[in-house]
């Protein structure tokens, strides 16, 4: 899931430097299985994206057509669906507002991480991606530990001041949902839902790039009632 964040950040930093909204929403059931929902909202950049899509190439690289992007999305979905422990993969996209949503069920957080790492490795031209060695989720039945790889800080330093300002206008929302109540969590930026079944942290791509620990959180759940 955090790998999605990683790729989205690269997308933000080097593709569309202005406002972007990302929601990563994970639901973990008591048995460790669950659902991941990941949404990327680029509707604030419609003009720019459409103007880029109207080009044949940009900075010497071919600009894909909408049909090619759709084909890539379908291929990504099929690859994910074929992975052990992953099911019900649904990708919803619209090229009018440029909103992309992915939803999938997983048997365990380990299966989820393995599947995502394998698919990214398959679609990536790079053979060894060091960031994929990082485990961003761990679950022992009573608590979940979430983190993010430290990959963006150095790249952000290369950006111009005005581009950095634009990064600050984006949103990154991380939501963790459970079947039982949250007892406590250790990230002071996080907030607890009214029903105490969900924890949310909101930040912007710039802050995230400056401090990858900003989303790090350990969430402790109440004991299972027999």
């Amino acid at each position: 899931m955090k790998t999605f964040a990683y790729f989205s950040l690269i997308f933000v930093l080097f593709g569309f430097t202005s406002c972007i909204e990302i929601i990563d929403d994970i639901t973990i059931k008591n048995d460790g299985s669950g659902t991941l929902k990941y949404s990327i909202n680029l509707s604030s950049n419609k003009v720019k994206i459409n103007s880029i899509l109207a080009l044949d190439s940009l900075e010497g690289k071919k600009v894909p057509t909408i049909a090619e992007i759709e084909a890539e999305i379908i291929s990504f979905k099929n690859k994910l669906n074929a992975k052990t422990g992953i099911s019900q993969v649904v990708i919803d996209y619209n090229f009018t507002d440029f909103i992309f949503k992915i939803q999938l069920d997983f048997a365990s957080v380990t299966a989820l991480q393995t599947a995502i790492k394998e698919v990214i490795q398959e679609v990536s031209k790079e053979k060894n991606i060091p960031d994929l060695e990082h485990n961003w989720l761990s679950w022992d039945g009573t608590k979940i530990v979430r983190s993010i790889p430290d990959i963006t800080t150095s790249r952000v330093k290369e950006l111009k001041t005005e581009d950095i300002e634009l990064l600050k206008t984006g949103n990154y929302t991380s939501i963790s949902r459970f079947e039982r109540m949250v007892e406590k969590f250790d990230n002071p930026s996080a907030t607890l839902s009214k029903n105490k079944l969900a924890v949310m942290i909101r930040t912007n791509p710039y802050s995230l790039s400056q401090n990858s620990n900003i989303l790090q959180n350990t969430i402790y759940l109440s004991p299972i009632k027999n």
Partner: peptide, 10 residues
Amino acid sequence: KIIFTYDEEF
């Protein structure tokens, strides 16, 4: 543009 709005259960 499209924005996401949240309720108290997120």
